[in-house]
Design a protein around this nucleic acid. Sequence first.
RNA 1: GCCGGGAUGGUGGAAUUGGUAGACACGCAAGACUUAAAAUCUUGUGUCCAUUAGGACGUGCGGGUUCAAGUCCCGCUCCUGGUACCA
Length: 957
Amino acid sequence: MTINWNEIETKWRNRWIESKDFETSPNEKPKKFITVAYPYPNSPQHIGHGRTYTLADVHARYYRMKGYNVLFPMGFHYTGTPVLGMAKRIQAGGKKILDGLRNVYHVPEDAIKTFVEPIKIADYFHEEIKSGMIEMGYSIDWRREFTTIVPGYQKFIEWQITTLKENGKIIQGSHPVGWCPNDSNPVSQHDTMGDVEPKIDDKNFLVKFVFGEFIFPVTTLRPETIFGVTNLWVNPNVTYKKLTVDNEKWIVSKECAYKLQFFDKEITEDGDIAGGDIIGKYAKNHDGRDIPILPADFVEPGMGTGLVMSVPGHAPKDYQALVDFKKDQPLGSEYQLIKPISIITTPGYGEFPAKEICEKLGVTNQSDEKLEEATKELYLKEFTDGKLNERCGDFNNEKVQFGRDKVRAWLAESKHLEKFPVLENAPVHCRCGTECVVKILNNQWFLNYGDEEWKEQARNCFDEMNILPSNIRTEFKEVIDWLHERACARQQGLGTKLPWDKDWIVESLSDSVIYMAYYTISRFVNDGTVNAENLTREFFDYILLDKGDVTLAADSSKLTEDVITIMKKEFQYFYPVDSRHSGRDLVQNHLSFFVLNHVAIFERKLWPQEIVVNGSIMMDGAKMSKSMGNIIPLRAAIRDHGADPIRLAIISSAELLQDADFNMESVIGIQSKLESLLEECSRLKNDTIGTLEAEDKWILSKSQILIGMVTESIEKMRLREALHDILFSFESDLSWYAKRVQAKGRENVSGILYKINSARIAMLSPFAPHVVDEMWEKLGNEGLASKSQWPAYCIDDVDSTSIQSEELLKGTINDIANILKVTKINPKKIVIYVNSDEFKLTVYRKILSIMVGGQNNMGTVMKELIADPETSNAKKMPDYIQKVIKDLHSESEEIKKMKLESNSFNEKEFLKSELASIGKSEFGVEVIVYSESDSDIYDPKGKARHARPFKPAILIE
RNA sequence: GCCGGGAUGGUGGAAUUGGUAGACACGCAAGACUUAAAAUCUUGUGUCCAUUAGGACGUGCGGGUUCAAGUCCCGCUCCUGGUACCA
């Protein structure tokens, strides 16, 4: 059978929409509130985006079948800058982006024409993504949909940010950003040529030397080396500038003077000074030592301040420059007395590591390229393994990696040091062509995530929360420890203005942290019950925080008390969030902020209950990227292969946190699996079930076990495993059952198969909802599978005796087949000997009980056997013990437990009645069963004595 | 660099608390069916040695703990996510 996926999917999707299956309002049932991070609509969805949403949808559908009233809503995150950059590029006729829109995303020309306006881009992809979500069968309550720039949402964000400010979570300070001097705007990846992210190196510092009335600032990444300074380097060919910087007189290069303009300092220019005029003089360092100023051509005016401090003991470049310099100096010159100063002790290096490494690598002069390598190697080694020595005063014996920060703090305190952030990956160019600089924004607004008390509350929340998979918990812990102030407003982009400072827009990762609460309100905004103007501060305070009272809220919002009460009930019913799904890339930001903001705003009982994190999707081993290369648009994939096969392929490709490698072969495999399942369902009928035979009891028990396992897996969001069990593992049980039924020539099993498959199909419904509703219909069941009850797992329905007896039968058949394979005998007669020795059985069960307890060492088992008077004679049969241990060792924990639980049964009777049919059909000869103690036993080769419980001896002639 | 996560056959990946490593799927090979091919079905498939029986080795590398290590500990190598105005 070949399925027309789109036809089936449309049929059922329409059915769901007509009966408003996913429109969820408060009722008397217990609720689950499942949310996913909403998408940013600047491109169509591809398979990779589909993963998180599909996982969440399966989760939602599962809970719905479990009897919960499940709310699964969706919004669209318009906040931010990417569409601004896109619009700019489109307006400029950027070929790359236009090609991408036309050829990869297949956006119609009419739409592209409108894309010069950022909102139109978002609107277009919003609809595109929404259509994809509908086509994927996501069970979303679309009545609650919103974008983050609608007035109602903006009111909500204003309330949120005001509340945070009043709770003392927002502070003002300075912050370095990448900046375009031409546009007077911060630049991000989307604003630069080549889409490079301007990276700011905040670990770069400026150290001040005193030069007469002037300050002589040099930059360094290693402030601790101040103790090892022997001289300063100045380029003799450069003309430097004299500046007044906040009441200090500085000498810096022209390039540095330009950069300083953006550092929030008051600067006036006082004229030039030639490098040559400074050389040969002395500057004083932090402790008043006279430091000679020497010439060096390698000093680049564009780097740092254009002035360099020389630490020849530990910096290979400085060492080599000093060597080169001394060569040109007369023998008696005082400069010949300049010697490197050793300040760091590093294992593997002597007093002057810079000298050693230069000699090791054979560096010949200061323009030698090997100096880069030498610097890198030594820098790292000294950082990780080095210790400051006695020349470093109070910092003697500090490890470099800790000492550096202490030295920095100490120098900063005495005003000898300040920050000098630089662009790590300079030069970065803005799209306008201007080279970007670092700008210090001094009136920046921050969320104070560094606040210890706040962190502690977040930790409490995490401690109580369910985190799936659990091994990501440590990462959250690290993130909370490491978080500090984070800018929460920016100067451009779509979004909501800061209520108290309208020059700023609430940053996109700060306006998306507690919006799940807004889903309970948006329904009323969308249907016109309330307008944005009604959403006042007192209104939100009353509904979300239970502050004030209904009268106050009604007065302020101009709404009736009834409406407010209904809305408050809606919020109280659905909140808190029961599960939040997201990709792993959001752990360090969104998900952590989500928790931090909840604990800052809401009372404890409204804190989130669970976070589920999934890995990304790879395509043929490579990450799917927006650079428009290897993406598969979701809607195209649905059209070509069907939504259900895509859903299953996404889920079955990897466990939750693993990166999933998506490939089309698996989609094809899944399609054929679903096709044969649908076919099977068309054949089965709800016949009455007669008297149960051994294999019927077994397969019914196995299906109960399947229900138990699948339910447990889904609870832990181990969806790959659950799906695997439903589709594949259980298949092998069914084929064994088919073999047994066929061997007996039975025709009366349709009712049993119907029952089993109904449960199996129902469990598949959250995963492949469309085709399963079709299967459900084919089975002749009432209603929809997606609205049916999740199959109940009942431990009492598991017949452990039938499981172990069937295992015995399978094992015996297997053993016979193995012997036949090895011996290549063409069997004429097969004889089975069953154990009947009571003592052997007692010992067997004793060993079983020991092994279920976790022990399986021969010595331990033997000791325990001997200790028990009932089995102490076992010491005479070590060979038997060893074999039994081996037998049991190869069985799963569950089987062992079941064997132990169930009372022993009559092996002989069972094998006699069941082995005949299957033996005949498998091997084509009669299989005769004897008990070891039977008087009429046929045992020409004396095999019978080898029989063990659950391991009959076998004779083949 | 720092903070996380990871490395298992030809491939994707199982092995959940230390207890048969390689489940399951793909691929490949042989066979059946077919004029042929595709599809389907059956069988085989970690490596090496061995005609067989069987044996040895084997989870990135080097050590260690344990009766037992893919799993725990120490030291490396490589890959990967994040690294703060990207959503």
